[in-house]
């Protein structure tokens, strides 16, 4: 029975990773850049929701909407100011700029909110724990996390495949130049991608902070890097890949924490990644790139 409960909490953690990984993978697919500041957008989202709730003016639902709106705007503004001027620069230059943005967000949070960890309130208290059998209890947060992630993933898949902006995103990720010639507004599409990615990060921040309630300016860094690994795991640029990669990563992390060693769990997660990448060099669902000579 214990195995099942570890598995379920692993899936829950993995769902959060998957949500964050979606942001990474969509931006990579469309703008061909690694957005290292994504993890810090999560942290900002967490702080916005925390501030809104602790000011006790708003209900948690309004606070979450606030978080999503702020993160979405933040994502778009970051893209416009820092990444758009570098559209034609080398990928490495963009990477370093993203790192700069990441430092910036961390230090702004440090100045505004201080370095002490805040205790994020449990806003999902209303959801009762689910006693499946004797000895196996699934907490309310876990249920909500998995449910919310499922809904978002289905919604996103439908959006990508059946709406006009979604098709535009697919087109831009396939061939930016050709998409532009066909009348797709590339700049709007990239902004939209950042907006969606950041909104997902805000949702992820609420779920993450409800499960692991410590919030400080560096909260976003480790989940961010893990989610990045998850995105690569599934094949970067692939949306179903990010979902599978995220959930697998969460499950592996939790099971290795439970059965092998809690201190070495990070090393095990990364070792699995290396093994998978040596067997399948473009990730689980990544496309094989054929090279032209």
């Amino acid at each position: 029975m214990n195995f099942l409960s570890y598995l379920i909490s692993g899936i829950s953690l993995g769902s959060v990773y998957a949500l964050i990984a979606l942001g990474y993978t969509m931006v990579y697919g469309i703008a061909k850049m690694l957005n290292f500041a994504h993890g810090d957008v999560i942290m900002i989202g967490g702080f916005v929701v925390f501030t809104a709730i602790s000011s006790s003016l708003t209900s948690p639902a309004v606070a979450i909407i606030c978080g999503i709106v702020v993160c979405t705007l933040l994502g778009v503004v970051i893209e416009k100011i820092a990444y758009k001027p570098l559209r034609n620069a080398t990928p490495l230059a963009v990477l370093i700029t993203a790192i700069g943005v990441s430092y910036l967000l961390q230090n702004v949070a440090l100045l505004v909110f201080g370095s002490a960890s805040k205790n994020f309130p449990n806003i999902f208290k209303w959801c009762p724990d689910w006693h499946v059998t004797e000895g196996l209890t699934v907490s309310g947060v876990t249920i909500i996390t998995i449910a919310v992630t499922m809904v978002i993933m289905i919604g996103l898949t439908l959006f990508i495949h059946f709406t006009k902006p979604g098709t535009a995103m697919q087109a831009v990720s396939e061939d930016r130049g050709a998409a532009q010639l066909m009348g797709v507004n590339v700049n709007t599409t990239i902004s939209l991608t950042f907006a969606i990615g950041s909104a997902l990060a805000a949702v992820a921040s609420v779920l993450l902070c409800s499960a692991y309630p410590l919030l400080n300016p560096y909260t976003g860094a480790m989940p961010g890097i893990k989610a990045f690994v998850a995105a690569v795991f599934g094949g970067i640029g692939s949306i179903p890949g990010a979902m599978i990669g995220g959930i697998l990563l969460g499950v592996i992390e939790n099971l290795s924490k439970a059965y092998i060693s809690s201190q070495l769990s990070d090393a095990i997660v990364f070792a699995v990644l290396i093994i998978i990448l040596s067997l399948k060099p473009t990730g689980i669902l990544g496309k094989k790139i054929s090279e032209k000579v």
């Binding site: 990579y28 690694l34 890097i225 990045f228 690994v229 690569v232 970067i236 060693s261 201190q263 070495l264 990070d266 090393a267 990364f270 070792a271 990644l273 290396i274 990448l277 040596s278 060099p281 473009t282 990730g283």
Partner: peptide, 24 residues
């Protein structure tokens, strides 16, 4: 054996593994 961003992420992973093991 890997290329581009995959190589980058695996070197990152190795760095983290080394840190994690040395830490223990």
């Amino acid at each position: 054996r890997l290329r581009g961003d995959y190589l980058a992420i695996v070197t990152l992973a190795f760095g983290e593994i080394i840190k994690n093991i040395v830490n223990n």
